[in-house]
């Protein structure tokens, strides 16, 4: 196990170095001049060259890369061209919003997905199974941004039940403590006894979570179903049944526990993907998170911001995959022995 851990962890460094390097060369070799972006079209040659020297862009690519690596080790992504503030500071302010959204999207996806998966497996080839699996297929075939617009059209514009975007009713005087609004709102509920913040935060989370969670929901439902079907044919389940144990107990107590192993892996992997899927969802719901910020950074050709955002999202993705991998090996003795 220790050897597995060491092997897995030692792969982490070259992968992250690769990510950082790829991002550097993608941006360095892309057409367009950061100095030009910063100064605008009307800047003269003199100004451009001064700024290029200031940013180190006049150095040879190798020197630039060396300096860049040195900064990366300190998580120093430089300053955003658009706002002039350190990129890392902006990211750490915005990331909680994205993680909060991804977390609730995943709660929605995992709960409903597992329930649907178990129901379809235990009622294989019935209309419940058929409808669920067709539904899951629709779920993975749908453009997420379109679903988001349709949800807004129905629940915000049509029925006027839920807000169209942002994280909190703008009329509330609300100062965030943790940047996780639900946690903030709970603190406020305890401190001031006023539930309006919590209800507003939750209401704002519903539509974006549903939109972002639809694809993982469909995938989790399919994986749960197939995993359950496989477990349900195994001998120990037959033994449990023949021992006269109630069917519901067999399913939920004995089968589900083992069937959930691949499901948990999928949940982990999908969570990593949600962080980048949030680019679309956040843009539509005006969710002030990393995804929307990164989108605007790309639009504005704000190179340091794009660099920082891409590296942070990818690093999180790599780390989540690593944790999932290790957890899977920890709970599955079959793999550990190999």
């Amino acid at each position: 196990m220790v050897r597995f851990l060491i092997k897995r962890l030692s792969l982490l460094i070259p992968t992250l170095l690769g990510v950082v390097t790829l991002v550097f060369f993608m941006i360095a070799l892309s057409p367009g001049d950061p100095a030009r972006v910063m100064l605008g079209e009307r800047a003269n040659k003199q100004q451009l060259e001064t700024l290029r020297a200031e940013l180190g862009l006049d150095q040879p690519l190798g020197t630039q890369y060396g300096l860049y690596l040195k900064r990366m080790v300190r998580f120093d992504f430089g300053k955003s061209i658009k706002t002039g503030r350190p990129v890392m500071e902006e990211i750490s302010n915005l990331y909680p919003a994205t993680i909060e959204l991804a977390f609730f999207a995943m709660i929605f996806a995992a709960t409903i997905g597992i329930i649907i998966g178990v129901l379809s497996a235990t009622r294989k080839n019935t209309w419940i199974d058929f409808t669920s699996m067709v539904g899951a297929l629709f779920g993975v075939s749908m453009p997420v941004f379109w679903l988001a617009l349709v949800l807004i059209m129905i629940f915000s514009v049509g029925l006027d039940l839920l807000p169209t975007g942002s994280r909190m009713n703008v009329r509330y005087y609300f100062e965030s403590i943790t940047n996780f609004y639900v946690i903030d709102a709970i603190i406020l509920l305890i401190r001031e006894g006023d539930p309006k913040y919590l209800s507003s935060a939750v209401k704002h989370l519903i539509l974006p979570s549903v939109a972002l969670g639809t694809i993982p929901l469909a995938i989790i439902a399919r994986v749960t179903r197939s995993s359950m079907l496989e477990v349900l044919t195994q001998d120990y389940i037959k033994t449990a049944r023949s021992a006269g144990i109630k069917e519901s107990r067999v399913v939920y107590r004995y089968a589900l526990k083992n069937a959930l192993l691949p499901v948990i892996t999928i949940i982990g992997l999908q969570f990593g993907l949600l962080l980048s899927g949030a680019i679309l969802t956040e843009t539509i719901f005006a969710w002030p998170g990393l995804g929307k910020w990164l989108y605007h950074a790309i639009e504005a050709r704000d190179y340091p911001a794009v660099q920082g955002g891409v590296i942070i999202i990818s690093t999180t993705f790599v780390l989540i995959n690593l944790v999932v991998d290790i957890l899977y090996t920890l709970v599955n003795p079959k793999i550990r022995l190999q």
Binding site: L16, L22, S30, S276, V306, V310, I313, S314
Partner: peptide, 24 residues
Amino acid sequence: MRLIDIMLAFPYVLLTIVIVAMLG
């Protein structure tokens, strides 16, 4: 295989966005 691992370290959506942003 190392290069492929690095490409897979980027979430798919993000990778497409970054490449397009680079190419225009």
